[in-house]
Simulated assay, not measured.
Amino acid sequence: MTQTVNLYEAKTHLSHLVEQAAQGEEIIIAKAGKPKARLVPINEPGTPREAGPWAGQVWIADDFDAPLPEDLLESFEGSFD
């Protein structure tokens, strides 16, 4: 079930609205009659994902995000001198 409340009411009764959302109810918070936000329960994390057919075959180097050497960077960006 979805309930719509105005912003003032939401501020006044936030604890109660959070409890309602935690029990599965969706709360729409509106300002001047226009929906602005939705208060919903947090879903508990599911089961961890299992590795697929590429498991153990792909790796990322430790320096993956290190800065590029200057000469290689210039070949991507071009020289503006």
Rank of each mutant, 00 (worst) to 15 (best):
G33D: 03
E19K: 15
A66G: 04
S79H: 10
T12R: 15
N43C: 02
P69W: 04
E44C: 01
F76E: 02
R38K: 15
K31R: 08
L73M: 06
P48N: 11
A32L: 10
P53T: 06
A32V: 02
A22R: 14
D63F: 11
L17W: 11
F64H: 14
S75K: 15
E26I: 11
L17I: 02
L72P: 01
E77M: 14
P48C: 02
D62A: 12
E25W: 03
D63K: 12
G56R: 08
A22H: 09
K36P: 00
P69V: 09
E26S: 10
E26H: 14
P45S: 10
F76K: 04
L39A: 08
R49L: 12
P48I: 06
G52F: 01
D63H: 13
E74Q: 13
I28H: 09
V40T: 15
E74I: 11
E25G: 06
A21C: 06
V58W: 04
P41M: 08
P67A: 14
G52T: 03
V58G: 02
F80A: 09
W59C: 05
P69H: 12
H16D: 13
E50I: 07
W54E: 05
A51S: 10
G52Y: 03
P35I: 04
H16K: 13
R38Y: 01
A30D: 06
G46C: 01
G52A: 04
S75N: 10
E26D: 05
A32N: 15
S15I: 08
R49P: 00
K36N: 01
A55N: 06
G24F: 08
V18K: 13
F64K: 08
L39Y: 07
L14F: 15
Q57P: 00
A55Y: 03
K31Y: 06
I27P: 00
L68K: 11
G56P: 00
A37D: 07
W54P: 00
A55L: 01
D62R: 09
Q20H: 08
A61H: 10
A66K: 13
I28N: 02
E74R: 14
I28G: 01
R49I: 01
G56V: 07
G52V: 01
A21E: 12
S15Y: 07
R38D: 00
D71E: 15
A32Y: 10
L68R: 10
E44N: 04
I27E: 01
A32S: 05
T47L: 14
D65Y: 12
P41L: 12
D62T: 04
K34W: 03
P41A: 11
E70W: 08
V18D: 02
A51N: 05
Q23D: 12
L17Q: 07
I28A: 06
L14T: 08
E77H: 09
G33Y: 12
A51R: 08
P45G: 05
H13A: 11
P41K: 14
G33L: 12
V58I: 15
Q23R: 15
A66R: 14
W59F: 11
S79F: 12
P45D: 10
N43H: 07
